[in-house]
Structure formats: structure tokens, C-alpha cells
Computed example of a mutant assay.
Amino acid sequence: MLRISNNLVGILNFLTFLLSIPILAGGIWLSSRADTICERFLERPVIALGVFLMVVSLAGLVGACCGVSCLLFLYLFVMFVLIVLVFCFTVFAFAVTNKGAGEVVSQRGYKEYRLGDYSNWLQKRVNNDKNWAKIKSCLQDGNVCRSLQQGNETMDQFYRNNLSPIQSGCCKPPTECGFSYTSATMWAGTPNASASNPDCASWSNQQTKLCYDCQSCKAGVLANLKNDWKKVATINIIFLIFLVVVYSVGCCAFRNN
């Protein structure tokens, strides 16, 4: 019975080791075809995660199954640090995403977003020129406005659309600017004289620019990020419980050794 915890830790780490192989392979594949800033930005975290999982799972597997206490102690130490980091990130994610929501626009199916509605920490991240250059490159490479460009819609059809936060903020000018609809990503006229929104001057009908330099685009990115972080934070709670259980089993295995 005393070896049950060791065997369980060994099985869990063997499965984690198998999981690390496709993650590491995916990171290497990304690095071999990375042509854009966005792809180069993704490859390093994926490779680092794959290597981390592989090394930690091997330490736990050998430590539990072969009775190597020093490796099992290292495994438990890393697991403890990971539990603390996941807990801190979860609390932080809920803290920085508790502000900000889209504003309903009269007779529109979509919402519009303002950068000032979000937490100061998030605002600083997207207002950093270096950070925003990378994000904008990802948006342009991802062709987030392509579906709107290809849709041959009337004005009424477009106004009824339920646009995503990024499409609403980056692919069209704010409603208060008063531009006239030509197509989803083409707007005619000049801004209203009473419009104080700086995005009105940032808007461009050039399809590579659109509103990618607008404050509304940054707000749309943060709205999307907020939704994703809340989902990740919820998943992290489940993951945290799993980590605590595995850590407790690992402590039993270390005591057996």
C-alpha cells in the first residue's frame, strides 16, 4: 500500500511527459516557419513550456519509480512554486479584469469600447509602443477585418451585426465621428466638428491601417483579453486543485522514499 502513491506519481508524470512531446514539437515547428513578429512571439513560450514539462515530469517519474529522493524533492519544490504562481496569477487576473465593459450604441447590434474604462495596468501595457507594435502586427497578420471586407452588406445589415470587440474597435471608426457608411471597412466624409474623440483623426480607409492605431482598437483588444483571462482564471482554479492533489500524493511518495 505504501507504494501506491509512488506508482500514482509515476503514472501522472509519464502522462505529463507524453503531453510535453507534442507541445515541444509544436514550438519547434513554429520556430521553423516563423516569418512574422506574431509567430516569433509565440514560439519561445511554447518551447519553454514543452521543455519545462518534460524536465519536471522526468524528475517526478524517476524520483517516484526509482526511489531517487533528491529528484523527488526537486519535483516537489517545483510543484510548490508552480502552485504559488498559479494562485497569484489567478488572483491577479481577476483583479485586473474587474473593470471595463462595452457601451451599447443606439440602434446598433454591436458595442463600442473605450480604453479609459479598463484597469490602469492593462492600459499601460497596450499604450507601450513596443507592445502595441507586436499586438498590431498580430492583428494585421490574423486578418481580423477580412470577414468584414468580404461581406457585401447594406448599411442596415452591417449595423445589426454582432461584431467582436476587436472588429468593433479596429475595423471601423467610432459612431460619434459621424462618418458615412460605404462598406464595413470604408467610410466617407469628415469627422463631426463636435467629436472630441482622437480616434476620428486616426481612422484611415487604407485597408492595412483602418483603426489599428485607435484607442478603441486597444480597448477592443483589452475587452477580448478580459474575457479570455476570466476563462483562464476559472480553469486555473480547477488546475490549482489538481496541482494540490498531485503535490499531496508526491509528498506521500517522498515520505515513502
Rank of each mutant, 00 (worst) to 15 (best):
I4K: 12
I4E: 06
S5R: 09
N7M: 05
N7I: 11
G10F: 13
G10S: 03
L12R: 02
L12C: 04
F14M: 05
L15N: 08
I21M: 11
I23C: 06
G27N: 07
W29H: 08
L30G: 06
S32Y: 06
R33A: 00
I37L: 13
C38V: 09
C38S: 14
R40G: 07
E43M: 14
P45L: 05
G50S: 05
L58V: 10
L61G: 07
G63Y: 06
A64W: 05
G67L: 11
L76R: 04
V78G: 03
M79P: 02
L82G: 05
I83Y: 05
V84Q: 15
V86Q: 15
V86S: 10
F89H: 09
T90S: 14
V91K: 10
F94I: 00
A95S: 13
A95V: 15
A101F: 06
E103A: 01
G109L: 15
K111Y: 01
E112W: 07
E112Y: 09
Y113R: 02
L115G: 03
Y118A: 03
Y118W: 11
K124N: 08
K124F: 03
N127Q: 12
N131E: 15
K134D: 06
S137C: 03
C138F: 08
C138I: 04
C138Y: 11
Q140I: 07
Q140W: 08
G142F: 11
V144N: 08
V144S: 09
C145H: 07
R146W: 00
S147K: 11
Q149F: 00
Q150F: 02
G151Q: 15
N152C: 00
M155I: 01
Q167L: 02
C170Q: 14
P173F: 12
P173A: 12
P174T: 07
T175D: 02
F179V: 04
T182D: 10
A188R: 09
A188K: 14
T190V: 04
P191W: 13
A193R: 09
A193S: 12
A195S: 10
S196E: 15
N197Y: 05
N197K: 03
N197F: 01
P198K: 11
C200S: 02
A201D: 11
S202G: 00
W203L: 01
S204I: 03
Q206S: 01
Q206Y: 05
T208D: 15
L210Q: 12
C211M: 08
C211K: 10
Y212D: 02
D213H: 08
G220M: 06
N224S: 15
D228T: 14
W229S: 04
K230R: 13
V232F: 14
A233Y: 06
T234L: 14
N236I: 00
F239K: 01
F242T: 09
F242C: 08
F242G: 09
L243T: 01
V249Q: 12
G250F: 07
C251K: 14
C252T: 01
C252H: 07
F254I: 01
N257R: 07
N257T: 06
N257P: 00
